[in-house]
Nucleic acid binder design. Structure first.
Lengths: 227, 227
DNA sequence: GCCCGCCTATTTGTCGACAATTTTGCCAGA
DNA sequence: TCTGGCAAAATTGTCGACAAATAGGCGGGC
């Protein structure tokens, strides 16, 4: 089903993905200290593979490490979110522009088909599915469609995990879903028309809206906690 | 002197930097297979720290690894250069815009002072210095001035090494130097005026020119080799 | 002569133990 | 009681050895 075929061949790969998911989905809380021995017992692997996993997590900014001290899961903050979405807007805008230029016709058709599927599910199940996986899938395809290796790498195995972490931990479920679907539709249309400039503009807008949406959630969140 | 204070505390840090420099500056040729045992004897450290170094190099796209097979230094190609400069243009353009917004007045003054220094050296020594370190320094400061942690990380300990690799290995010395200085001057002026939009535009242009310059060199290079 | 499968050799992946550094807790002195 | 420093405990950094997987060469079969 999922578009992201991230095949774990080695043991370190699996551990990395497990730990990454556990962090993104909050089973390992933000700000937690990551003890190597503790993790190695929990995940039933040696410290070496834990260290490799942590190193990779550092590369995608999910953990921070100080030499001879240890690694901590990053903490989420409004500033961090702002900065994250700043670069996301820039990079994904560019991805959309490149996708309008470089995607093959069949890839575009598949993308349109994907949106149709989402629409059907949205009608049937009351738009619960679209939420996570659908949105993720859509953005992944655009990024892949850019055919730019650096872009793909930075976004897909870099920033996106952090984006997901923000979304998951703030409990994403809201009125944004339906409007996001329309935005996706327009973006695909621009790409199908090979209108690079419009594709970029729409994508940047789309992400800007998304940021505003999640930002208000973050404020509510901290307000609730503050009380 | 150098602005980039990258302090190596642990042994793996040092090895990573050494190996990285050796790759960037061509002492380890592009496309070379990186044997872990060989490297561990060469650099007088255990395989564990070599593996960590290789992992970090993977994160900044200087080497590629296949599981159970090994790691190779990336190969330079016109497509790779194109893709690299595409994202560089986008990200550094954004960095310039953010720098115009977020740099402190004293930081801007320091930047202007830096350019003056470069100008003097250019006059005295016949612009040989400006070449490498000066340009690097300039761009580093702008990026840092953006105050965006993700941007800083992706560029400075990600793409820049690859950029340097392209430049070094194609033997950068050319007529571009002086015009680049003028471009830098205008960018700083825009930043000093807090003109975000102009700063971004000028920076994007600057990088575009730089790409064209290096691209013709790459063509000459491969032509020479082809004959 | 060519192709397929096996076997060996080399290389990578993983592990547990040791060394170095940091943190924590305790004690002495003011 | 508070502060400074020393010592012990815990944690990270580094290492060498073993396990697993791949690549290359050899021989047998067609």
């Amino acid at each position: 089903m999922s578009f992201t075929t991230e095949t774990a061949v080695t043991n370190a790969d699996k551990t990395y993905m497990q730990l990454r998911n556990d962090i993104v989905e909050g089973r390992v809380a933000a700000g937690t200290k990551l003890s190597e021995v503790e993790l190695s017992t929990n995940y039933c692997v040696s410290r070496a593979v834990i260290r490799e996993a942590i190193n990779r997590l550092m590369a995608c900014h999910l953990v921070e490490r100080k030499a001879n001290v240890g690694a901590r899961v990053v903490t989420l903050s409004p500033e961090g979110l702002e900065q994250l979405y700043q670069v996301r807007e820039s990079l994904e805008g560019m991805a959309a522009r490149l996708a309008a230029k470089n995607m093959t016709d069949t890839e575009i058709e598949n993308l349109q088909h994907l949106l149709n599927t989402h629409f059907d599910q949205q009608v049937q199940t009351g738009e619960s599915y679209y939420q996570e996986a659908g949105d993720v899938d859509f953005h992944y395809r655009i990024v892949q469609g850019s055919k730019n290796q650096h872009l793909i790498s930075v976004l897909i195995n870099g920033l996106y995990h952090l984006v997901r972490m923000y979304r998951v931990q703030l409990g994403m479920a809201g009125p944004r879903v339906t409007t996001a679907f329309d935005e996706h539709l327009h973006i695909v249309k621009a790409i199908a028309n090979r209108d690079e400039e419009l594709a970029e503009i729409l994508m940047r807008r789309h992400i800007l809206y998304s940021k505003n949406n999640i930002q208000t959630k973050l404020l509510n969140h901290s307000n609730l906690k503050g009380q």
